[in-house]
Design a protein around this nucleic acid. Structure first.
Lengths: 338, 338
DNA sequence: ATATGCTATGTAAGCGCTTACATGGAATTA
DNA sequence: TAATTCCATGTAAGCGCTTACATAGCATAT
């Protein structure tokens, strides 16, 4: 919007030009209420002639709807982010909603005010840990439309969430490593435990081991942090301590990359000396040397569904509380399959 | 915003609670006008107590400012996109501006209405070809704040733009290939000529050749399309026609990847039989086999500067018309250097 | 003591829409 | 023909802010 420049075309100009009332123009623009074809035609002509664009602010003020949804993420960057945003953007556009995005990364998460909320959006998609629990609870309490992405609700609250089958994906990966590849000493490179994706992947790993009666060995659990550098460092350290395994299962592909780098520095051959597998299937995975066996997560699809759910909630429709999307094993050479 | 739920706290509630007028509350909230410390304290207390959040819509309507900037891009995805968005988001937040983003990819670009414009933002960052010229011209004519990113203004219009030294970067790369590596037959994998980055990189290539008195050979110019698949196909085709070169300079890293794949399929060794270099330095570049020599573009920085410029324009301050950011050669093995 | 200028604050008029309600005419029914 | 219904449209009251202007104190200058 511009400071002044009073050349603004308002609904009144359109009404006057078309020879109808502002109410009629509003009805035509919003396709609400009944309007004769004749009147509608005049209104459309006027809109065209005057190049009228409704003021989002005035609309919002009068209707108590912003026609916008917000996306809250913790960090831009991470391979995760791109397909997610693409999915959200596409669906938002499809639903004629503006998309506001804000990252809480770097800012002190504990401190309001949050840039996105009731005052400037009709609903929010909250990714992982991008919002502290109190704010989540507050928004929920005032009945503000919320959909969680890649996380579940705080205990006791019920709000729709959509995420991927992390546990199942991890379990299938481990099953594959044990049953098809014959490994028994499987190390796990953990992610931040506050991140639910990381949490469930670890649980899946543990469950699969238990199911095969393989005891959990704490020396096989190393810190990955969903981060290449950190995984690199902790893998190097682990090797230095004389520890080893037949295969390292990294909780995400980034940490798999770090692990691979550390292994190579130690002159270990992948997968002959030690295999490596990851989770996510980022673009890089296929280009690594050797190409990385991993679990593919339908990130874009999850994002799309989240928007659909949110739009439904905003419209007051019912939605399912939990949507879990299947993951898929992607077998490449790093697991020693070929 | 929520449909009804009349529990909304307005500026009047705050004024009443604090025992002042709404004007005073407004002054405090906006830090505009003079207010006694005493009154300000009462207002802050009231805001805190009532958990007041100003309505963005009402503010916008009354002040003719949305406090939001828009980002228009053509496609989400592309390695380009992530650092760009991160830079924009960070600077928007720093300037207390909401960020609206919309991709025009897929939609019919020739057809209004555009989701972002005068009615819902205070200014727009327009990336490359995300907006047709007419709309650019229209916005410029009504004096709407605009900053172009990775493109220059339509002929005759002057609006601030920020982009990277594509021509210079390409020239330096070619100079390096000729002077340091001794190549003379340098093929070029073009990008879409409507994309300015592609255009200038090609010019830089041509100028460098001319400067070394190497004639342009049309059989050395192949279509890359800034796209892995297309580059792959056209490189394969080029080889099939019996053509060759000492090195392929791809206008972006994605097409370099495609070219490398095609060369490998043809059993050519990189860089022994033919070298490959790219442009952008995407994350993948360092992981390719062999690692890709390329030109690094400061994408995030360009994005940050664009926002700074835009904010200045919105505030009515002067800004420089053209900002050109330097690029940097990144030498890795694919060029045959080591 | 009076005039003058400041400063802090209040009053109230919009901003450009949406929408509940009112209205009048045409169509339907008795 | 009169009564009833229904549909298209208009009237006007907000929505929650900002801000130009008015005003009342008070300090300073005369």
């Amino acid at each position: 919007m511009q400071p002044d420049e009073s050349g603004r075309i308002t609904i009144m100009d359109v009404a006057e030009y078309a020879g109808v009332s502002t109410a009629t123009v509003s009805r035509v623009v919003n396709k609400s209420g009944r309007v004769s074809d004749e009147a509608a035609a005049k209104v459309y002509a006027a809109i065209e002639a005057l190049n009228y664009k409704p003021s989002a602010a005035a609309r919002g003020l009068a209707s108590h709807r912003t026609n916008a949804i917000g996306l809250l993420i913790d960090e831009i960057g991470g391979e995760f982010f791109q397909p997610m945003l693409r999915g959200i953007e596409i669906m938002a556009r499809e639903n004629r909603m503006d998309l506001l995005i804000s990252s809480t990364g770097g800012m002190d998460k504990a401190s309001p005010p949050y840039p996105l909320g009731e005052n400037n959006t009709d609903g929010l998609i909250v990714f992982a840990n991008s919002l502290p629990q109190e704010e989540l609870v507050r928004l929920h309490k005032i009945g503000f439309p919320l959909v969680l992405l890649h996380r579940s609700p705080p205990f006791g609250l019920d709000m729709p969430c959509v995420t991927v089958e992390n546990k199942e994906g991890a379990r299938r990966m481990v099953n594959y490593l044990i049953e098809q590849r014959g490994y028994r000493r499987i190390a796990f490179l953990t992610g931040p435990s506050s991140h639910e994706d990381a949490y469930w992947r670890k649980i899946g790993y543990q469950e699969a081991l238990s199911a095969h009666a393989i005891p959990l060995d704490p020396t096989l659990m190393l810190w990955g942090g969903f981060d290449e550098q950190q995984a690199h460092a902790s893998t190097a350290n682990w090797l230095k301590n004389g520890l080893n395994a037949e295969v390292i299962f990294a909780a995400d592909d980034d940490s798999a990359i770090g692990a691979m780098a550390a292994l190579k520095e130690a002159r270990l051959r992948i997968p002959e000396d030690i295999a490596v597998v990851g989770f996510d299937d980022i673009r890089l995975a296929a280009y690594l040397d050797p190409p990385l066996t991993t679990v593919r997560a339908p990130i874009e699809q999850a994002a799309r569904i989240a928007v659909e759910q949110l739009v439904k909630v905003i419209r007051g429709e019912e939605v399912e509380t939990m949507t879990l999307l299947p993951t898929e094993l992607v077998i490449r050479r790093s697991c020693g399959c070929c």
